Amino acid sequence: NEEPLPEGWEIRYTREGVRYFVDHNTRTTTFKDPRNGKS
């Protein structure tokens, strides 16, 4: 039961299956979860 991502964020996966987060607001990507700060 995960809380929803902030507005404008999306979860994607690399070809290796590593989860990362896309911030469409700033057009950046990060491996850090914007909901809780954990990677």
Rank of each mutant, 00 (worst) to 15 (best):
N1Y: 13
P6F: 03
F31N: 07
N1A: 13
R12K: 12
K32P: 02
G17D: 04
G17M: 06
Y20M: 05
W9S: 00
T30W: 06
T28A: 06
R35V: 03
F31S: 08
K38S: 15
V18S: 07
E16Y: 13
N36H: 11
T26L: 06
N36S: 12
R19E: 08
D33M: 01
D33H: 03
R35N: 03
E3R: 09
G37A: 08
R27N: 15
Y13L: 07
R27Q: 15
G8K: 04
K38L: 15
K38P: 15
E3V: 11
E3F: 10
L5S: 02
R27K: 15
R35W: 05
R12D: 04
P6M: 04
E10F: 06
F21I: 00
V22Y: 15
S39L: 14
E16P: 05
K38Y: 15
P4N: 09
Y20S: 01
T26W: 03
W9N: 00
L5Y: 04
K32D: 14
G37I: 10
E16W: 12
K32H: 12
T28D: 05
R19C: 13
G17R: 05
F31M: 10
L5P: 14
R35Q: 02
S39D: 15
R15C: 12
G37N: 13
E3N: 10
D33F: 02
Y20G: 00
V18I: 14
F31V: 07
R19S: 07
Y13M: 07
N36V: 12
E7S: 13
V22N: 02
E10M: 06
H24M: 09
E3M: 10
N36A: 13
K38W: 14
W9Q: 01
V22E: 05
N1I: 14
R27G: 15
H24Y: 09
D23V: 01
D33A: 02
P34S: 00
P34G: 01
E2L: 11
G37P: 11
H24G: 06
T26S: 09
W9F: 05
N36L: 12
W9V: 02
P6I: 03
L5F: 05
G8E: 03
P4Y: 07
E10H: 06
P4R: 09
R35F: 04
G17L: 05
H24D: 04
V18P: 01
D33S: 01
E3D: 13
F21K: 00
P34A: 01
S39T: 14
E3L: 11
E2M: 11
E7G: 08
R15T: 13
V18F: 11
R35Y: 04
I11F: 06
V22L: 10
D33Y: 02
R27H: 15
T14D: 08
W9R: 00
